[in-house]
Amino acid sequence: MPSSFSLLRRSSSLLLRFLSSKTLNPKSSNPFSPLIIRTSTIRSLYRGSSEQRWYCSSPSSVAQVEEPTTSDGLTLEGIASKGWTILDEGESDWRSHAAAIAQSVQLIKKRLQESMRALADMRKNAKEKELEALLSRDNDSCSCFIEIQAGAGGTESMDWASMIFNMYKSWALRRGFGVTVIEEIPGEIAGIKRATIKVDGEYAFGYAKSEVGVHRLVRISPFDSSKRRHTSFAAVAVIPMLGGDTSNQYQIKESDLKIERFRAGGPGGQHANTTDSAVRIVHIPTGTTATCQNERSQHQNKASAMAVLQSRLNQLEMARQAQVNAEHTQSLSEIGWGTQIRSYILHPYRMVKDLRTNYEVYDPDSVLDGDIDGFILNYLSALLDKEDGV
């Protein structure tokens, strides 16, 4: 039995000979005539077993491709299953040549399928690593509030705000997030003036933060009897929800504290200036200090100092969170021309385009049904490249 290497080399030379030869005459004495194989048939067998594999998106779809056949109805698997003996290269039995080619193609198909599975695993791992990098900022893992507010355009914009509102609810449900309507103020005629939804789930804020900004709609107005084209605006703000009680109370770590004990000063009782009862606590990361020396017991002074330190750190945390919220709600200050991040065009053509990344989709209906992951991932990727200086 010839080796695998010689088998592949032999089948390659046979294929080249077939592809370069003229059409075979069935009535000639050529040893390949019983197959009634023509050059176009061999070419289709060879191309069909390779090209169809390169353009399949997954190994599972390979089985769905129709297998090419010869003029006698033989497939590659059919030839291989007959178990024809593969002779040495010097002998010229057509069954031996056909079996050699069939086994070689089967070997190539097997290697291609293995390579495709390995490539799919690599793409999956790369995607997971990329998502970890995209969602690595502070508060990205938190849940969030999404606020929608109608802008310039009157009833048109209120209706557009309602469409945006439904789009984000559908998107959140698609991703498996919990959705709760916190606030919804209806418009006088249609739509909403303002609405707020709570999106619960891991990395909800990390994804939704890419939607902060003004969204613009161009369409034939359903509220205009003259069927004129109108432009509407709606603003979106995203606010992170810090986990647990952190939004109201700063979590203090013992390792971040420096506790100093000293003697109390000033007037007092007989123990006031004779023991180290006064306590000063320094929060090292922020430099915040709290001191208490009014109590007679060191433990009481420490508890009182901790209460003062906690209040001061709570105030700092509230100020920090207010600054974060301001960054993610700045889009609500001005809603109109020149401030939009994305355009939804329904007339005279149909397209949705993100003006920050130039990412485009030509199926606005799917986008308005909540299929916005493409816009989100492209923006996060562009943001990561900008941070890396790419």
Score class of each variant (00 low, 15 high):
252 I>C: 09
240 P>W: 03
243 G>H: 03
294 N>V: 09
279 V>T: 04
293 Q>W: 07
254 E>M: 09
300 Q>Y: 05
285 P>S: 06
275 T>W: 02
246 T>P: 00
278 A>C: 12
277 S>I: 05
246 T>D: 03
236 V>T: 10
254 E>G: 08
276 D>S: 12
289 T>H: 02
263 R>H: 01
253 K>V: 07
271 H>S: 12
237 A>Y: 06
278 A>R: 12
279 V>H: 09
234 A>F: 02
246 T>S: 10
258 K>Q: 14
288 T>V: 15
296 R>M: 07
260 E>W: 05
276 D>N: 15
236 V>L: 10
297 S>A: 15
298 Q>M: 13
275 T>H: 11
265 G>K: 15
281 I>F: 07
237 A>F: 08
264 A>C: 07
274 T>Q: 13
237 A>C: 04
300 Q>H: 13
239 I>L: 12
245 D>V: 02
261 R>A: 14
295 E>W: 02
259 I>V: 15
285 P>V: 11
255 S>T: 15
258 K>Y: 10
260 E>T: 13
254 E>W: 05
282 V>F: 08
272 A>N: 12
298 Q>G: 06
291 T>I: 14
294 N>A: 13
241 M>F: 01
243 G>C: 01
261 R>K: 14
232 S>W: 02
269 G>H: 04
263 R>L: 05
251 Q>P: 00
234 A>R: 03
255 S>G: 09
239 I>W: 00
240 P>F: 00
234 A>L: 05
294 N>E: 15
236 V>G: 07
271 H>P: 01
295 E>R: 04
245 D>P: 03
295 E>M: 04
242 L>C: 04
293 Q>F: 05
250 Y>H: 13
241 M>G: 00
294 N>R: 06
234 A>T: 02
249 Q>P: 00
297 S>L: 14
269 G>Q: 04
300 Q>P: 05
243 G>S: 10
264 A>D: 04
251 Q>H: 13
